[in-house]
C-alpha cells in the first residue's frame, strides 16, 4: 500500500518553482530518505503534503486518499510531522506540551505514559519537569518534538532534518527510535543533509535538486548498482596508470594526485599482480563501494568520486 504518492506536484513562489513536477512514492514500511541541497525544495514538498501549503499544480494522496477529498483530514490524523523545527509552546513544560499535543490529536494518554515517552526520546524527566521549553537546548527541543510526534501513535511520520542540533549520542538515540518504530510498522519520510545517517536507516531515497526529483531508488538497488572501485597508492601514479591501461582489462581508470582509481568490478588480485610485476612499490590498496553521498554527488554532477 502506498502511504504517500505525489503526482507532478508543483509549488510556485513569486514566479519561481520551489517544487516542480515531483512524483514520489512511499510504500508502507519504508524509511524514505529525502536528499537535496539547501533550497532544493525538500521542506516545501513536506509543507505541501502536511497541508501547511497548497500546491500550485499536481496532486498527492495520503493512504491513497487524494488531497482533493474531504477524507484527507481523517487520514492526516495518522500522520505526524516535524517541519523545519520542532514546534511547541516555549512557556510550557515538556509534559504540558505533550498534553496539548494529546488534545490536538485527540489521543488519550495518562501522565505516566507521557513521562515514559519523554524518557523514550532520551530526556530525563526529573531534570526537566519544572523547566519551561524556552530554556531547553536545541537538541532537547528536537527530542521533545519527536516525542510530540510519537504521542499520536501515527503510522506515517515525516521528519524534516531530525538530526539538527543533536549531539552524537542524540543521533544514535533518534536513529534507534526510528528503526524501532519502523520495525513496529511506522513508515517514515526523513529529509536530511547528513547523508551518512540516512544511509544507515533508509530503505529508499529520493534525490531532489532545484525543485525537481532527480531519482528515486531503493537502497538495495543502490547497493546493487553501486559502482565499486579500487583505490591504489604506489610510488608512481603515472607508472601505475600506464601499467593498468596497458593491460586493457579495466573499464575506467582515473589518475588523481598520488593515487589511481579503478572503477567497476575489477579483480584486485589481478591489479596487484600487474603492479608487482611492473616493479611498482604498492603503499595501499582499498576496495570501496559507492556510498549514498557519492551517489548523490555523482547524480548532481558536482564532482568526481574520491
Amino acid at each position: 500500500m502506498n502511504v504517500l504518492t505525489t503526482d507532478r506536484l508543483s509549488k510556485v513562489y513569486k514566479g519561481n518553482f520551489a517544487v516542480k513536477g515531483v512524483s514520489l512514492h512511499i510504500e508502507q514500511g519504508d524509511i524514505y530518505g529525502f536528499v537535496g541541497e539547501n533550497g532544493a525544495g525538500k521542506t516545501t514538498l513536506i509543507r505541501l503534503v502536511t497541508g501547511l501549503a497548497a500546491p500550485t499544480s499536481g496532486s498527492y494522496s495520503l493512504y491513497e486518499v487524494p488531497n482533493s477529498s474531504r477524507e484527507i483530514f481523517e487520514v492526516r490524523r495518522r500522520t505526524g510531522a516535524i517541519v523545519e523545527t520542532a514546534t511547541m509552546s516555549r512557556s510550557m513544560t515538556a509534559l504540558e506540551n505533550l498534553k496539548t499535543q494529546c488534545y490536538i490529536t485527540g489521543v488519550e494518554k495518562t501522565e505516566e505514559e507521557l513521562i515514559a515517552l519523554i524518557g523514550r526520546v532520551g530526556l530525563n524527566y526529573e531534570e526537566i519537569r519544572r523547566r519551561k521549553v524556552g530554556k531547553f537546548s536545541l537538541g532537547m527541543r528536537q527530542r521533545l518534538g519527536i516525542a510530540m510526534v510519537l504521542v499520536s501513535d501515527a503510522d506515517f511520520i515525516i521528519l524534516d532534518e531530525p538530526m539538527n542540533g543533536l549531539d552524537p549520542q542524540g543521533f544514535i538515540e533518534v536513529r534507534e527510535t526510528i528503526l524501532k518504530l519502523n520495525r513496529e510498522g511506522v513508515t517514515f519520510l526523513i529529509s536530511s543533509h547528513i547523508l551518512s545517517e540516512l544511509e544507515k536507516i533508509c530503505t529508499k531515497i529520493g534525490v531532489i535538486s532545484h525543485g525537481e526529483l532527480l531519482e528515486e531508488i531503493r537502497m538495495e538497488d543502490l547497493h546493487r548498482n553501486a559502482r565499486r572501485r579500487i583505490v591504489i597508492e604506489t610510488d608512481s601514479a603515472d607508472a601505475t596508470e600506464e601499467a593498468l591501461t596497458a593491460d586493457g582489462s579495466f573499464a575506467e581508470i582515473v589518475k588523481e594526485t598520488g593515487r589511481v582509481t579503478v572503477y567497476g568490478d575489477a579483480d584486485v588480485n589481478r591489479v596487484m599482480w600487474i603492479l608487482v610485476s611492473k616493479g611498482l612499490w604498492v603503499r595501499s590498496v582499498n576496495m570501496l563501494e559507492e556510498t549514498i553521498e557519492d551517489h548523490y554527488i555523482r547524480l548532481l554532477g558536482r564532482g568526481r568520486i574520491a
Binding site: 501547511l52 487520514v75 517541519v83 499535543q101 490536538i104 510530540m148
Partner: peptide, 16 residues
Amino acid sequence: LDYSNGTLRNKVIAGN
C-alpha cells in the same frame, strides 16, 4: 503566540 510557537501548525498537520 499559537502561530509563532508553531503549535498552530501542529493542529493543521494533525488533520484539523
